[in-house]
Write a protein that binds this DNA or RNA. Structure first.
Lengths: 252, 252
DNA sequence: GCGGCCAGTTGACGGAAGTCAACGGGCTGC
DNA sequence: GCAGCCCGTTGACTTCCGTCAACTGGCCGC
């Protein structure tokens, strides 16, 4: 046990998945021992992104999948006219980059909402490991599937006819994700702007702003810029659905 | 070459991927020769679903992935109250069932919109083959990724602020998919109801109906119940975007 | 500290789309 | 063939949310 080796071990350990505080949330879940070590080896040194920095852009060649270690990102697409549609917000432990698997080119863009730390999983190396470790292959499929299910949630949110239901569902879902990160699920610190929230939900920023104010008046929230405290989780949950029976959404 | 064997061969051939008219559209794309044969062997006999029949329901255990051979299906989720949100329409050559990969339980439902023929790919067998054929593994990942990208398109559609843009985009995208199937992309025969279209886009059925009428008046479409003829593809494409610059979607 | 800028909020207004209602016309089953 | 049902369309009305505008307060750079 010479000191130098110990230091090296610590450094490697620090950046390895097995010691990652979020490790049960991301790829290795369900993988143990040797297999985890092999996965560790494929993780490139982590990157840090400043607020506003791009992780990847449209048409970038597919190099790697990325796991958020800390901070938050948004992914979005833009059309020729420059119109943006936000696809997702990514919190620590969440993976992004799957959009490029189909064509080997990214078809969306990823931007840091705040100073963020990112794990990079070079796909070539990842592919090599998955071919040797069937468990990782299955796990990777599961992770993509979760991505699909997450997008379903987004679609359901956007399908709601009342803007208030949409925002309530958004906050409710965010609180859930915070709790999964062992954070306080009632004291949200929103990394995204009102503008981003509006775009994500298919609304305009004024509507979102008014809804925050209205929900504050109702005693559901306490809003202070980016900081949102959920005073009445029960009421928030109730606001996620309309009381009146909707004609559109009933089963035919 | 005794007659009986020939008949058997023909039958097997008929239901095999290598002779499937849609084969370049679905899983085997990019796979050849021996590998294709092995994939053929994993495909279970095809199923036929009548209009309204369910392919799978929520909480069904994950058995297989499914490829549409003919007909059309919709996938959707329902909440406790029975509210429905349609997630996708599936045309021939398209795969469904990926939602269950994460939990081994389906979290959505699939229903035939008309008499449909389905290829069943039992996942256990598929997994065995993918572990032996790396190319298929990569192909499968690509297909799921395409699913993700397809959902992005749905999100962009729902994010549009004008209902007319939404419907125009929907029809435009449908025309594209018809052409990929070597069908006439200007003579659509909609397998889904107005109700389904409305739900898919987050609108109500009256709005969709009015928009069809309006677009007919504009000379863009000729509508006759389920049959929609696109008279002016150029105008339809133009209707997919608003002329006026939208504040919400501009890049900040 | 000060100025400017941008994010966010609020108000007034109008219009697009949702709601409610009536009706027509296929399709199905008897 | 006829009845009944459901799908789709259309009209009248209402309302929610998008638009435009003004204003405030944080934040950053100078």
């Amino acid at each position: 046990m010479e000191p130098a080796a110990t230091v090296l071990d610590l450094n490697q350990l620090r950046r390895s998945c097995s010691s990652c505080a979020l490790y049960e949330l991301c790829l290795p879940a369900g993988i143990g021992g040797d297999d985890l070590d092999r996965l560790d080896a494929t993780v490139k040194d982590k990157r840090t992104l400043e607020r506003g920095a791009m992780l990847y852009r449209e048409n970038d060649t597919f190099e790697a999948l990325y796991v958020v270690r800390s901070g938050a990102l948004k992914t979005f697409v833009q059309n020729e006219a420059g119109d943006m549609q936000i696809l997702a917000f990514h919190l620590p432990g969440e993976i992004l980059g799957f959009d490029a698997l189909a064509t080997n080119l990214h078809v969306s863009q990823a931007e840091a909402l705040e100073r963020s730390s990112i794990c990079e999983l070079p796909y070539a190396k990842l592919q090599q490991v998955t071919s040797e470790v069937p468990a990782l292959h299955r796990q990777l499929m599961r992770v993509i599937s979760r991505e699909v299910v997450e997008e379903h949630r987004h679609l359901v949110m956007m399908g709601k006819q009342q803007a208030q239901e949409q925002l309530a569902s958004f906050l409710h879902g965010l609180a859930d994700r915070y709790q999964r990160l062992h954070r306080d699920g009632t004291a949200l610190n929103l990394p995204m702007s009102r503008y981003d929230i509006a775009n994500y939900l298919g609304l305009v920023v004024e509507t979102v702003s008014r809804l925050f104010s209205r929900m504050e008046e109702m005693g559901v929230l306490e809003v202070n810029r980016k900081s949102v405290r959920i005073l009445r989780p029960d009421l928030l949950a109730a606001l996620c659905r309309t009381d009146t029976v909707s004609r559109r959404n009933d089963v035919g």
